[in-house]
Design a protein around this nucleic acid. Structure first.
Lengths: 100, 100
DNA sequence: ACCCGTGTTTTACAGGTTCTTCACAGGCGA
DNA sequence: TCGCCTGTGAAGAACCTGTAAAACACGGGT
């Protein structure tokens, strides 16, 4: 079980909770969220996310990570309004912040 | 992990800390700071900084190094007031001095 | 086989950030 | 003082990100 603030992930059960309420995520979305929660607070390179979630070498023209970050942001934004969980680090990647 | 006085750099994590607090740097700024910290206390030729950070041959009319030294000085100055970290060596280059 | 629904990947473009270059003011050494 | 060097703001170029939508993949039902 992984936790980051109000977000809880149980990858083996294919479940993610926000404030205790279940999030309806697809496989990719859950996989990306898991990767981010496992690295919470740290800046994660887009390349690393791609390797871990997609399990294949990264092509720098690939925008999949960005697209799925947007999907996650949207669903997390609905579940936990007024919180900025996923931060962008320009030219590098993203970071999920547990706290406020 | 690299350290120079109150400045700590972890290039692989894309992080730089001043007095333990994260600095918000761009890719180039972090790269230049890394090069200077790796050579702390030494006078580094503008040409060497250019080669290392920009990864291409140096044209003596190029002012990029100076511009980015100014950017770094400003951000470091905000984070660590009253300290002169980066020194100019006229006609040559720059030197980063580990904190007092 | 075909259609449909769901999920994934790719594309396209708008908008934003960063980088480079220029210009000029001021500093430094001879 | 003169000539060269450095500091730095500003402007446009170059590059990166957010996001909607199109294209694609695939399984289930008919």
């Amino acid at each position: 079980m992984l936790q980051a603030g109000d977000v809880e992930v149980r990858p083996e059960e294919f479940v993610a909770l926000a404030d205790g309420r279940p999030l309806s995520l697809t496989v990719r979305e859950l996989s990306l969220l898991t990767a981010l929660v496992e690295r919470q607070g740290k800046i994660v390179a887009r390349e690393e996310l791609y390797r871990v979630v997609w399990n294949e070498p990264y092509r720098k023209s690939d925008r999949s990570v960005d697209v799925y970050v947007a999907k996650l942001r949207h669903k997390l934004g609905v579940a936990l309004p007024d919180r900025q969980l996923i931060h962008t680090h320009f030219g590098f990647g993203y970071r999920l912040d547990p706290g406020a």
